[in-house]
């Protein structure tokens, strides 16, 4: 009989443990690699940006463009499609890439299509409201030479609590005049995730 109460008491304690919660917050280095769920995270985004920037700047397309144009090529960001299984903010690595290329002084960027629309609205608004000296004129935009487009794909293999996720990010620069592709960069990331079927 005593055994019965011991068992019951043990389960009750377990029950109490299950109901308790504990939260701790600490600041960490933004470059630290922390993988919690196995989903796409800041580290993946950074790895893609680093690889793409390095590859993009080391390929011959750039010197060819300089020779041809005699000035820095101008790039516009086109559509980068997320075809993966996760809702991923692609803008994070695209912005990293844009910033690195601008800061390198080798490539100029012009505003993307939605940004341009907002800028044109502002210019239109200035036309009726700003002073003559400060007003900006329409029709003075710089036309881009190249468009950056791409996609993020994923393939998943899963069995029970185990998963292998393969991400492939492809970016390409296309000459807007000739539609010739001048650079294709790609980055592959593979992850193995295992989950326990039982926890305490």
């Amino acid at each position: 009989m005593n055994n019965f109460f011991r068992v019951l008491f043990f389960f009750s304690l377990l029950f109490l443990v299950a109901c308790s919660s504990n939260q701790k917050v600490s600041r960490i280095d933004p470059n630290a690699v922390v993988d919690l769920s196995g989903r796409w995270n800041d580290t993946d985004s950074r790895l893609v940006a680093d690889e793409m920037i390095k590859d993009c700047l080391s390929r011959p397309w750039y010197s060819n463009m300089i020779q041809q144009k005699g000035a820095n090529p101008t790039v516009v960001i086109g559509k980068v499609r997320n075809k993966s299984h996760e809702h991923i903010n692609i803008e994070t690595f695209i912005k990293d890439m844009e910033r690195a290329l601008i800061n390198s002084g080798t490539v100029d960027f012009v505003a993307s299509a939605p940004e341009r629309q907002e800028l044109r609205n502002e210019i239109e608004s200035q036309a009726g409201n700003a002073t003559d000296e400060t007003r900006k004129d329409a029709g003075q935009e710089i036309g881009a030479d190249l468009m950056l487009t791409g996609s993020l794909n994923s393939i998943i293999d899963q069995d029970g609590g185990e998963q292998v996720i393969f991400y492939q990010i492809d970016l390409e620069l296309t000459d807007l005049q000739s539609h010739r592709k001048v650079w294709i960069g790609n980055k592959k990331i593979k992850k193995y995730i295992s989950r326990d079927a039982v926890k305490f």
Partner: peptide, 23 residues
Amino acid sequence: TKAEQIYEDLYAKSVTNEAAALL
């Protein structure tokens, strides 16, 4: 999205919860 996240987080069965359910 939150509901789906909860579903995924509950993939692992908790021994304590199972014990509580048993009682």
